[in-house]
């Protein structure tokens, strides 16, 4: 039986049947498992925490890890494990909401700009570029200084900060797709802007856009943690992971788990997302012989 060379396979396409499969990298799988685990924790936190987050359970503060308190106690003697589990709600929830808003707005605007072109594109790009030239932490600082810090404000601020990036990314991709003849064909068929964006552009940029979604999620988690660490993010009595580090920074000289563990929680989430993106399951449409 003759086996054709790789680059002639397409030429002989009729003889082969497309077979769709996925190749998953174990590293990516580990990343995915950790992401899923944190998501489950965020959803079910109130049910699984061993102690109430406000309850003082240790006579000592900055207690070490022990059989009863797995992650030690914080600066008031509260259970760190419970606080971390509850913190996941804020870190994951706020970041997810913000990234969803940022990417949706950015991608829709980016595609519109790319397909419309002309002055719409120029004005949108110029405005968003200007927004982008305000360092993100600074933007957070200024907004918090002006309106204070509540969770809706945080979500909105974080998403506004990352809209320009999502816009730029989506626009660059869409501009590339827009130069393709199939868009031109649809255009001279008389299709509407909405159809062009939905049917011709979006399906062809979806993969990279989803990867960008993940990357931006990481940025937002880091920025949120940074703001909370500065005392500008989630405010007491609630606490996300960044705020937990801030609360317990006094334990740093003692090397208390209360300072280290929240940082590790953030790192575990962000590194997992990065690993997952770098090892996305490759969809394989390989041709196999009958």
């Amino acid at each position: 039986m003759k086996r054709p060379p790789a680059n002639t396979i397409a030429v002989l396409g009729t003889k082969f049947r497309g077979r769709v499969g996925y190749r998953v990298n174990p590293v990516g799988l580990i990343g995915l498992a950790i992401i899923v685990a944190w998501t489950v924790v965020a959803l079910t936190a109130p049910l699984i925490i061993p102690h109430s987050v406000g309850e003082i359970v240790d006579f000592d503060y900055f207690g070490p890890m022990s059989r009863t308190l797995w992650l030690g106690s914080d600066y008031l003697g509260r259970d760190m494990l419970s606080r971390i589990l509850m913190g996941a709600r804020y870190t994951v929830g706020i970041s997810l909401a913000a990234v969803a808003i940022a990417c949706t707005c950015g991608v829709v605007l980016g595609m519109t700009a790319a397909v419309t072109g002309g002055w719409v594109d120029t004005i949108l790009s110029r405005l968003l570029d200007a927004l982008n030239s305000i360092p993100s932490k600074l933007f957070g600082l200024v907004v918090v200084a002006a309106v204070g810090s509540s969770i809706p404000v945080l979500i909105l601020t974080l998403s506004v900060i990352y809209i320009p990036g999502a816009y730029r990314f989506a626009r660059a991709l869409a501009v590339n797709v827009n130069t393709m003849d199939f868009v031109l064909v649809a255009r001279i068929r008389g299709e509407s802007l909405f159809y062009l964006i939905r049917a011709e552009i979006l399906p062809n940029i979806l993969g990279p856009v989803l990867a960008d979604f993940g990357l931006r999620f990481v940025f937002i988690v880091l920025l949120l943690s940074g703001l909370s660490f500065l005392g500008l993010g989630v405010q007491p009595p609630y606490a996300d992971w960044g705020a937990l580090v801030r609360e317990n920074i006094g334990g740093l000289p003692y090397g208390a788990p209360a300072v280290i563990v929240p940082s590790l929680a953030i790192a575990s989430l962000t590194i997992s997302v990065n690993l997952f993106i770098d090892n996305l399951p490759a969809k394989i449409r390989d041709k196999e012989e009958h």
Binding site: V218, L222, S225, G226, F229, G242, V245, I249, L252, P253, Y254, G255, V259, I260, S263, I266, A267, T270, I271, V273, N274, L275, D278
Partner: peptide, 28 residues
């Protein structure tokens, strides 16, 4: 990847832990 995935304050606190708390080379 490791470094860009962690918040800056984690790198800073790790540096303090290592050089100021454990090794005692530097002031915090």
């Amino acid at each position: 990847i490791g470094i860009i995935s962690v918040p800056e304050f984690m790198i800073a606190t790790s540096a303090v832990l290592i050089f100021a708390v454990y090794l005692k080379w530097l002031p915090a």
